[in-house]
Every structure is written in structure tokens, then in C-alpha cells.
Design a protein around this nucleic acid. Structure first.
Length: 634
RNA sequence: GCCCAGGUAGCUCAGUGGUAGAGCACAUCCUUGGUAAGGAUGAGGUCGGCGGUUCAACCCCGCUCUUGGGCUCCA
């Protein structure tokens, strides 16, 4: 039988494992697995005719999957040795580590994690060899039912008859597992259990509640440390923490969960973003509108939200014997404005944009600071156009979107096009044309995108954009969605050149998604140190003593006229303290004013981060900030 | 919603079945100072809320509200 090892054709005996093949090739024990036709396999794997095999070494990214999977097994053994009644379920490798779900009457605590870690350490140090055994479905069932491992039983019962069932052993302990694993436990050089959390068997909230232990493993302590410090860094940047420290926003018990209070500092930033947003949208040909926060329930009946979205809507209220509803979306209002006059094909595209606050019921467990709130403000817009206009309009939306994202320092993004799902409205021809229009608009901009086949909403195809922040984390913000449904439901039309009544299509689009969420992302992206154009206080003046009060007031006048947000710290405190506090509040420019500066008509400039620009003439410093202000005209 | 872990001064957090603690912030005073914390004094709490056990509850128990980690990754 032939296989290809590193592209080279090799004749091997049928039924030989990759490990054995590598052995004959005199590979050393740094080889711990293989990539076979793009999939990670271990040395136990028996290759099939013509498969392409390449070795996976330890200390590589690819090898991490192997040690993490084995680490999950080691964890399971450790847990069962400490709490023998514990039932095992599944323990896969995930993006940055692994987890294992357990069923146990004992509630695991953080302290238990330390005990498990210690036990794992012992198992790893024993350098237990891993072995693989293939058994029949019948004996697998027998085996696991005799052990009372009923979750495993359930899994095995559902396997197709022909499926090869394998057990992985580490010494005596074994688990039903398809692999892949490292040859022995000692390859796990460095690991850590990170957290305990709840989960459900098979993610189904009607099934058994399980306890999930998250952990990660690496080939070296150095890598583990690097990963842990990344987690630390993310913690430091947590927008909930910075929001409090920098006095940006709060979410309080008294007001209610998921409802955001924007404090003056946060509001200043939001105002600047909104001003920029409005300017850009007016330039891009949108009409800016305002709509109410509640409306008659009938409107949501027509839109279909009551039927399809009721789980996320707040309950209705009675007003003058009519039912009203807080808005979970802005679209029906925009539609009503479209319908307020008879539209001609000459009017299209009609573009309405609104910074519109919506209210959605989110289950209490999913609320998360600004990222997931119950009241939030969308940067919403709706484009009413013909099918033929979609391509051009979407291209304009993409242009506007990239302009915005670049202005906020996001250079990297991933783009996804989602196509027709199994249940949909509209004709196949409409879907094809709209989907092609979306793809073409991206191709015209030479933007790469991935296609999520069947991932579209029932009402139309869409483009989603995920941005990457400085820590490399992805966030989905921008979305462009074609909608065939609402124009039909609201019976929208326009008069064509031939005097026919035709139905327009609608494009829903948001760039930030929501101001709350986007603000949260910005806080974490910048770590609270906002760029000059966004900083709530741009320049802080620190007086050395009372003698400089007049001079500092004079400076404030000058900078205020330049529309700079400036504050003076006149407190009766030492300069060192004032500098420390200005630095902690992350003000971009700190000006120290003492006797010298007053006499010389200068300012001593210190940039955020500690860089000293030294003593500058006032006009020289004006030049510095004017240059900074240019930054926001990206 | 469900599981686990929290909720003590404005903030960050100690703490104990027997009168509630620190640091920062705040107020007043002293100090008028030169690049990341000057000093003193003081005020500030129904220990998330409601019920229970107890001679006595911030602590133990139950309920409730709320915050955090999760609940998609499939042997």
C-alpha cells in the first residue's frame, strides 16, 4: 500500500500505524503525531491508501492539540481518583486549551482545582504510556455500563454500527475516545486548570447539569506564562473595570440590570463618536431621523417581530385601551417614514439613518457589561432600493464601514457572506441576485471573504464583519443584511418608469452594531488610553503653586477657543501627586505650570506614557495639538 | 432561565456566633511644593433585601435581588 510522507511516496505494509512507519524512517521521539489529509492524528493512526502524512513535532502549534487532549484525560483521571462517584462525559480540545464535563453530586470549587492539579502532576510525572484499544460496540457498551458511566453508554448507543470504537488507556485508567493523544503523559510539560463552570449534557438545558473544568496545557512553562499574562492583560483592559476607574459608565442595581448610565466622561466620548457618525452619514447621503421608543403592538404584528422575536421583547403595556410595546428594533419606524409618501423609482435609493435606542429582553445569565445589555443604541440605517441597486449601495456601505473602523484603529477584519438557509422568503432568483451583489461589492473592493453557506437569515443574505483588537480578539460589529421580508409585510412599493407599482428591497446595516458594545470594545482596544480626539480630557494643566492660577486660566481660554477639552488641577497638592493622578486618568497631554513657565510664557509638556516634550512656547504646543486634531479627519 | 462562586464605607478588599476594620477617595487644618502618593484630624456602614434558627446573626439556614465564570466547541 502506498502513502505519502512529506509528499514522498512510500510503500508500507497494510495495517501499520503511523508510529511504526515513522519508526522505520528513524524519526526520533520528538515526533508525537501526524497531520493526515489536513487532520491531526496520533501515532496510533493506521493510514489508508494514498493518504498524505506529515509528522507533527512537539513544541509546535499543531502538537498542542495532542497534549491538551491528553491533559483532559489526565484531568478526568485525577477527578475520578479524588471523587470516585464522578461520571465522565466529554473533554474536547478548544481554542486555547481544553475542558472536561463531569457529572457529580459534589460541587467542585476553586480549591478542588488545586487538588486536581496536584493529582494531575502525579499522573504526568509517572510518565504513563498511552495505548489505544479497538473494541466492538457490544463490549464497549458492556464495559461502560458495568462502570455506571451512563453518559458514555448513551454516546456509544448512538454510534453507527460500523463505527470503530476506541479506548485510550493511560496505564489502568481509560476513556472512550477517538483521540488523538500523545505517546505518554510526560509530554504535558506545563498545564493549568483555569475555572469551573456549569454546562449541560449536550448543551441542552433540559438535560443533566454538568460541571465543566477549563484548563490549558503547553510544551513549556514559558508558553504557559505567556498565555497567562495575556489573560492578565485582558483582565486589566476589562471595560467594566476601566469603566469604573475612568468614570465612564455604570450599571446599577437601582436602575436595573443591563441598563447603562453614561457618566460625563463616557458621554463625552459617545458624543464625539456620534458627531463624527452624523457628519459622515450626511456626507454619505443618508437622511438622519428620530423615532419613538414605544409603538402600538399592531406595528410589531405587521413586522412579524411579535411572532418571531417575542422571546426578546419586553412585555406590552396598556395605554388608553390600546396595547403598546417598547421597540426591540428600529426598522418598522423607518418603514413607516418610507411609506409616508408615494415613492418614485427616481427617489431610490432612500436611505434613513438613526442613532436609535432599542430594548431587548436578554436572559439574566447572558448580560455582560456593555457587551450585552438590555437597552442599547444601534447605529441603524435602512436603505430602500431596487434589486439592481444592491451592489452599488452595499459597496458604499463597505466603504463607509472601513473608513469608520480605520478611524478607530481597527485595521484587521474578517468578512463573512451568509447565503440562503433552508427556510427562506423571496424567490431563488432574488436570492441569487442579492447574494451575488453582496459578493461582487466585496470583490470590487478586493476584500477577501469567507462564505457561510446557508447561514443567512430567513429574510435575506448578509455580510458580517469581524474586527480584531490589539489583543487579537475578534468582535462582530458591522452587518449588512438584505431583506425581502419586511417590504412584503408592510406592502412597500415605488412607481416604476412604466408606471407599475414595484416592491423595493431593504438593506439593514449597522457599522458599530451598538454604541454600548462598540464603546466597550474601544475601551478594551485602547486599554482606556483613548487617542487624543476621543479623550474626555485632552489636556490637563497642573499648577505648581497658587501663583500660577491666573496664568493657567489664561491658558484654558486659549485652548478652549481651539475646542480642546482642557482642565486645571488647582488643588493644594504636590506636583508629584497631580502628575500621578493625571497619568492614572490617562490624559493625553499634561502641562506643568510653575514659576519658570509663567515668566517665559511657556508650558512644560508631558505626554501620556511619560514622554517629556520639555518646555514649549504656547504656539509650539498649539502646533502639537493641531497636528493631533488632524488625526480625527481620517 | 440553569449550574457554580461572590455581594461588608464612594472605590479596592480584610474580618468574626458576642458593640464593624484597612488603604484610597471625601471634609477640615498644616504645608506653596518642580515631574507617579507631604502630614494631621475627622466624617462616613440597617455588612444586598426579606424571613428563620439562636439569649445573641454580617457570620448558620431558606427565599429573593444582583454581579462574575460558564451553559456553541461534541467519544
Amino acid at each position: 500500500m502506498n502513502i505519502f510522507v512529506n509528499e514522498e511516496k512510500l510503500d508500507i505494509e497494510l495495517g501499520k500505524s503511523i508510529g511504526e512507519v515513522f519508526c522505520t524512517l528513524k524519526y526520533d521521539n520528538s515526533v508525537i503525531g501526524a497531520i493526515v489529509d489536513g487532520e491531526l492524528k496520533d501515532l496510533f493512526y493506521i493510514p489508508k491508501e494514498d493518504e498524505k502524512v506529515s509528522p507533527v513535532h512537539k513544541d509546535t502549534e499543531q502538537g498542542l492539540g495532542l497534549i491538551r487532549h491528553t491533559a483532559a484525560h489526565v484531568l478526568a483521571e485525577a477527578v475520578q481518583s479524588v471523587y470516585p462517584e464522578t461520571k465522565v462525559t466529554i473533554g474536547p480540545v478548544i481554542e486555547d486549551g481544553f475542558y472536561y464535563d463531569f457529572y457529580s453530586t459534589k460541587n467542585f470549587t476553586e480549591d478542588d482545582l488545586l487538588i486536581f492539579e496536584k493529582k494531575m502532576e502525579e499522573i504526568i510525572n509517572k510518565k504513563l504510556p498511552i495505548s489505544r484499544k479497538v473494541i466492538s460496540k457490544g463490549s464497549a457498551l458492556k464495559q461502560f455500563s458495568s462502570m455506571g458511566e451512563f453518559f458514555k453508554e448513551e454516546l456509544i448507543n448512538e454510534f453507527p454500527e460500523k463505527e470503530e470504537i476506541s479506548l485510550y488507556y493511560q496505564d489502568q485508567w481509560f476513556d472512550l475516545c477517538r483521540g488523538p493523544h500523545v505517546p505518554n503523559t510526560s509530554y504535558i510539560k506545563s498545564f493549568k486548570l483555569l475555572s469551573v463552570a456549569g454546562s449541560y449534557w449536550r448543551g441542552d438545558e433540559n438535560r443533566e447539569s454538568l460541571q465543566r473544568i477549563y484548563g490549558t496545557a503547553f510544551f513549556s512553562n514559558k508558553e504557559l506564562k505567556k498565555y497567562l499574562s495575556l489573560l492578565e492583560e485582558a483582565k486589566k483592559r476589562d471595560h467594566r473595570k476601566l469603566g469604573k476607574e475612568l468614570n465612564l459608565f455604570s450599571i446599577t442595581d437601582e436602575v436595573g440590570p443591563g441598563l447603562v448610565l453614561w457618566h460625563p466622561n463616557g458621554s463625552t466620548i459617545r458624543r464625539i463618536i456620534e458627531d463624527y457618525w452624523r457628519d459622515q452619514h450626511i456626507d454619505a447621503g443618508y437622511s438622519l431621523i428620530f423615532t419613538p421608543h414605544i409603538a402600538k403592538a399592531d406595528l410589531w404584528e405587521t413586522s412579524g417581530h411579535s411572532e418571531f422575536y417575542s422571546e426578546n421583547m419586553f412585555s406590552q403595556m396598556d395605554i388608553d385601551s390600546s396595547k403598546y410595546q417598547t421597540k426591540p428594533m428600529n426598522c418598522p419606524f423607518h418603514i413607516m417614514i418610507y411609506k409616508s409618501e408615494l415613492r418614485s423609482y427616481k427617489d431610490l435609493p432612500v436611505k434613513f439613518a438613526e442613532i436609535g435606542t432599542v430594548y431587548r429582553y436578554e436572559r439574566s445569565g447572558v448580560l455582560h457589561g456593555l457587551f450585552r445589555a438590555r437597552g442599547f443604541t444601534q447605529d441603524d440605517a435602512h436603505i430602500f432600493c431596487t434589486l439592481a441597486q444592491i451592489e452599488e449601495e452595499v459597496e458604499k456601505v463597505i466603504n463607509l464601514t472601513t473608513k469608520f473602523l480605520n478611524a478607530f484603529g481597527f485595521e484587521d477584519y474578517e468578512i463573512f457572506v451568509s447565503t440562503k438557509p433552508s427556510k427562506y422568503v423571496g424567490s431563488d432568483a432574488e436570492w441569487d441576485e442579492a447574494t451575488n451583489a453582496l459578493k461582487n461589492s466585496l470583490k470590487n473592493k478586493s476584500l477577501n471573504f469567507l462564505v457561510d453557506e446557508g447561514g443567512g437569515a430567513f429574510y435575506g443574505p448578509k455580510i458580517d464583519l469581524k474586527i480584531k483588537d490589539v489583543l487579537g480578539r475578534s468582535w462582530q460589529c458591522s452587518t449588512v443584511q438584505v431583506d425581502f421580508n419586511l417590504p412584503k409585510r408592510f406592502d412597500l412599493n415605488y412607481i416604476s418608469r412604466n408606471n407599475d407599482r414595484l416592491q423595493p428591497v431593504m438593506i439593514h446595516r449597522a457599522i458599530f452594531g451598538s454604541f454600548e458594545r462598540f464603546f466597550g470594545i474601544l475601551i478594551e482596544h485602547y486599554g482606556g488610553a483613548f487617542p487624543f480626539w476621543l479623550a474626555p480630557v485632552q489636556v490637563k494643566i497642573l499648577t505648581v503653586s497658587e501663583e500660577q492660577f491666573d496664568y493657567s486660566n489664561f491658558l484654558v481660554d486659549i485652548f478652549s477657543k481651539l475646542k480642546i477639552r482642557v482642565e486645571i488641577d488647582k488643588r493644594n497638592e504636590k506636583l508629584g501627586l497631580k502628575i500621578r493622578e493625571a497619568a492614572i486618568s490617562k490624559v493625553p497631554y499634561v502641562l506643568t505650570i510653575g514659576k519658570n513657565e509663567m515668566e517665559n510664557k511657556t508650558v512644560s509638556v508631558r505626554k501620556y506614557g511619560g514622554e517629556q516634550l520639555g518646555e514649549l512656547e504656547i504656539s509650539k504646543f498649539e502646533d502639537v495639538i493641531k497636528k493631533e486634531k488632524m488625526g480625527d479627519l481620517l
